[in-house]
């Protein structure tokens, strides 16, 4: 972990002070995020491993091609781009809130926290829509010579190969693991977003109550910010693994 820790006698390491010039709370937050990165890492790597172990996988451009109120238009990746931008934007507002915190500007912090929370809620809303769309979807699947109608669930995957059946192209069942990993990982990420929103709401309330002004610094906002950016960071990788490749 700390190759550098072994270096002697740099002034930072002599004790009596933080070697990183960072408060214990932030150090702890960073290492917590690192351990959480291993949780997500393990999920995503498991997903990758399973994908490597099967011959076919569902094509994201086919699975994720819908958009709210757009009917059956084929809009691959459009909705997930929207979600990505929402999250990036809420990250920006979060970092601006932290920035206002440094300046001890309570009003500014409040403003940007509200925007961040709204961004988080919007993202959650999008995810809820996407899940609903996938689960309630209705896709013709050829099972044992019979056409069945499936949505995408943890035990059903209608996105397999297409074969010719009675003069039309019909999908066959795809690898079941797809649904499990998709809902499992996006769900776990959504859970992080949700808890991030809760944390941000608490921070907003504490800001309004003037707790941080009394304390003389807005470090709590910074810590909440770290968590929130981490959520954004994870989404970057979820976006890569599920939607792009």
């Amino acid at each position: 972990m700390s190759t550098n820790a072994i270096q002697t006698n740099t002034k930072w390491w002599n004790g009596g002070r933080s070697p990183f010039n960072v408060s214990y709370g932030k150090v702890m937050m960073w290492y917590f995020l690192m351990s959480d990165a291993f949780t997500f890492g393990a999920f995503l790597i498991s997903y990758g491993t399973i994908r490597f172990s099967v011959n076919n996988w569902a094509d994201p451009n086919h699975v994720f091609n819908a958009f709210p109120f757009a009917g059956h238009a084929n809009l691959p990746l459009a909705f997930v781009s929207l979600m990505t931008f929402i999250l990036i934007f809420s990250s920006v507002t979060m970092v601006l809130a932290v920035h206002e915190g440094h300046k001890m500007n309570r009003k500014g912090v409040e403003k940007y926290m509200v925007l961040t929370i709204l961004g988080g809620l919007a993202f959650l809303g999008c995810q809820a829509w996407e899940w609903t769309h996938l689960i309630t979807g209705d896709h013709a699947v050829l099972v044992n010579g019979q056409i069945e109608h499936w949505g995408t669930t943890v035990s059903k995957n209608p996105w397999g190969h297409e074969v010719m059946h009675e003069g039309a192209m019909v999908a066959t069942p795809g690898p079941i693991a797809f649904g499990g990993y998709f809902f499992g990982i996006t769900g776990f990420h959504g859970f992080h977003v949700f808890s991030g929103v809760i944390i941000n709401v608490v921070m907003l309330i504490k800001t309004r109550l003037g707790h941080f002004d009394q304390r003389g610094h807005y470090e709590m906002i910074e810590k909440a910010g770290l968590y929130w950016h981490f959520v954004d960071l994870v989404w970057v990788f979820v976006f890569l693994c599920f939607y792009l490749i």
């Binding site: 820790a5 009596g16 917590f32």
Partner: peptide
């Protein structure tokens, strides 16, 4: 995790004066 994070942070951040890592 709660324990481990605490131990790491304490060792890094809370050493008394003169208590370098070595």
């Amino acid at each position: 995790l709660l324990g481990g994070l605490n131990y790491i942070t304490t060792i890094l951040n809370m050493r008394t004066k003169g208590m370098s890592m070595t």
